[in-house]
Design a protein around this nucleic acid. Sequence first.
DNA 1: ATCAGTTTGAGTCAATTTGACTATAACTAA
DNA 2: TTAGTTATAGTCAAATTGACTCAAACTGAT
Lengths: 246, 246
Amino acid sequence: MPIAAKRVITVYTTSANVAERQSAPPSLAISTVIFALRPSESSGRPTLWIPLVRRIREPFKGLWALPGGPLTHAESLQDAASRNLRETTGLAPSYLEQLYAFGGMHRSPTQRVVSIVYWALVQPTEAALADESENVRWFRADKLGSLAFDHNGIVEYALWRLRNKLAYGSIAYHFLGEYFTLAQVREVYEAVLDTQLDPANFRRQIKSTPEIEETGEFLQGGKHRPPRLYRFTGRPGLDPDNRSTP
Amino acid sequence: MPIAAKRVITVYTTSANVAERQSAPPSLAISTVIFALRPSESSGRPTLWIPLVRRIREPFKGLWALPGGPLTHAESLQDAASRNLRETTGLAPSYLEQLYAFGGMHRSPTQRVVSIVYWALVQPTEAALADESENVRWFRADKLGSLAFDHNGIVEYALWRLRNKLAYGSIAYHFLGEYFTLAQVREVYEAVLDTQLDPANFRRQIKSTPEIEETGEFLQGGKHRPPRLYRFTGRPGLDPDNRSTP
DNA sequence: ATCAGTTTGAGTCAATTTGACTATAACTAA
DNA sequence: TTAGTTATAGTCAAATTGACTCAAACTGAT
């Protein structure tokens, strides 16, 4: 049995100088942009919200940042994302997809970091259970302050992808529970795309997609005519993580 | 001036056992799937080709693999991809976009490797100049053998993305030179999507997109009526690499 | 010089889809 | 009972798409 050749190197964990930083290998981190719909305080209509965590150490100590952490040995990238998400926010997403690998050289002032970022959708029931504390808080996606690192740009790109995927793919249903009304689906579109949609035309389009199944049930307890409940029967995307070889 | 806190760890470069491998941090590599159109030997019509490099060391020594290499300190991810691409194949792509970060735990038998994979399109004139040698060769995208690592799956996913992006976005023109005929655009679509398209309807659709500009020139020297030359005036995608903060 | 063969490029027409809009059904609250 | 509100079906013109026809423009063979 061959013996492993070992080479001892040095890792700089804080404030290394330029020469030292250049010799250190880039470190790998996983972060996640989490989207949920919650009622706006003002209008009461659903809007997009994102949970952020406060940084408790330098760099950017005190600023808000995306939940994330280092990649550990015994887990795939997606597993690392969902574990980290559970640990920092208590959330279990109904949809999780890789967003992008950000690897610019000056993302962190102390160290070269490559971040593999995921994005997630959580249902409102889940979102309500999330641990909110001094260091974890929900923000409206269109009213974030200045975030740590390049996280403003990352959220912006995640928003672009979300809107894009909503317009094409069948992603909206992951914001909702198993049963939903067509008006709820419309509210998702209106909140994410920030537009008003004609109810009649919208329902015609949605009903024409084969992934939507009419159930025999109706939503009771509303103030008006009870709407029929539907169910989504499609499968997630075709990303490598959801295929065969991640 | 604070002194950097140093922590000494051990990196295993060859055949570490399981316990040792688990304690080693994942290493980062950049690879690229390169697409070009070249005439098929049989029909002469353009088809999709991919350049591969032969592995000259273990693991998978002798097998064909995607061009790639480690990420070095002083370059962004995209820069690393295009540098590596130039070094291994001599190619300078007209289009380069991040595909996916692959980080499954058993991608390499000797070591945990996270690969950030890009995909590229090169024009036929470029492709003809590429260094072809004993260890670099072009293959038809639909007739690859068994590749090293998980590279078969990666190519499959890249193909899916290429077809997807062709159907929506305006990507086809990066396979062509600055001036092109509408029939050439149609040939790109037919080669990539592997279908026959009605010439008259296709030209009507393409001409209706605002990114296509009619020039006053015509392609001379053909056997039949000289077709008008067009120009693409659109800009690349909206990926983070092509935006602001990579 | 003429004709056959081929590709470019414009146009026609019916089928389908989309956007704007109307009307009715079904419920609650007063 | 009635007014208010949402759900849902349906109508109709405009826009888009798919299948197809036809003239224009060139080459190469006769």
